[in-house]
Structure formats: C-alpha cells, structure tokens
Simulated scan of single mutants.
Amino acid sequence: MSYNAPPPPGGYGAPQPAYGGAPMEHPQGTTILILGILSIVCCGIFTGIPAIIMGRKASNDGQAYSNAGVIKAGYICGIIGTVLSVLGIVFYIIMFAIAGSVSLSTS
C-alpha cells in the first residue's frame, strides 16, 4: 500500500527586521574617533575640544546608533587628550617660572 503524504508547507520567506528597523550609523562617528585619537597623540586641545563637542552632541541626539561605541571612544579620547594637553601647558608654565626665578636669583 502506497501512502502519499502531502507536501511540506512552503517557506515563510526572509525574516523580518526587528520593530523599528536596525539602528543607523552616525555619519560623524569615525570623525569623532579620529579627532579623539589625534588629541592624545599629537594635537591636544585643537582636536580634543571638537571631539568632545561632536561626541556630546551625537550622544545627546536621543537616537540609538550602531556605532555608539565609536562615538563614546572618540569622546573619551578627546577628554583625555585635552586634559593631558592642559596639564602639559601648566607644567611648562611652572617650569619656565622656576627657571626664571632661579636665573634671577643667581644674577
């Protein structure tokens, strides 16, 4: 006796994206990261402050970005680079003041 089973049901198609779709990427995320890294490496305040401003603005947009980690890393690097630059400037001012006072006292 031959039994003919019905064919299996058809596929359900491609899975649908999550409600609201996937989060989009912030267009300036990479720029924020590059400015933050440059503030640590060489440029200090000149690239650190823009990285802080742009990172803060991107974080306060109220949207979930797929590259939020990149934005946060650039923001933090900008803070670190700016603080290191300010500390370096203060150090050099103190050293010049000490050198000036020593040279005046020996003359």
Rank of each mutant, 00 (worst) to 15 (best):
I32K: 02
I40K: 01
G20E: 08
L38I: 01
A51G: 04
C42F: 14
G55P: 06
P50L: 07
C42G: 13
I49L: 15
L38Q: 08
G44E: 08
Q28S: 15
T47A: 06
P23G: 13
I45Y: 15
I32C: 06
G36M: 05
I40T: 05
A22N: 14
Y19D: 13
L33S: 07
A18M: 15
Y19V: 11
G48K: 03
I45V: 14
H26M: 06
T47M: 05
A22C: 05
L35C: 01
G29P: 01
I34P: 01
H26G: 04
L38M: 14
L33E: 13
G36D: 03
E25F: 00
C43I: 08
E25K: 06
G21N: 09
M24K: 12
P27G: 07
G36S: 06
G48H: 04
Y19T: 10
I53V: 10
G21W: 08
S39V: 07
H26S: 06
M24R: 12
P23W: 14
I45F: 15
V41Q: 05
G48I: 05
A22R: 12
Q28F: 14
L33N: 13
I49D: 09
P17K: 05
I34E: 06
A51D: 03
G20D: 09
L35F: 11
H26E: 04
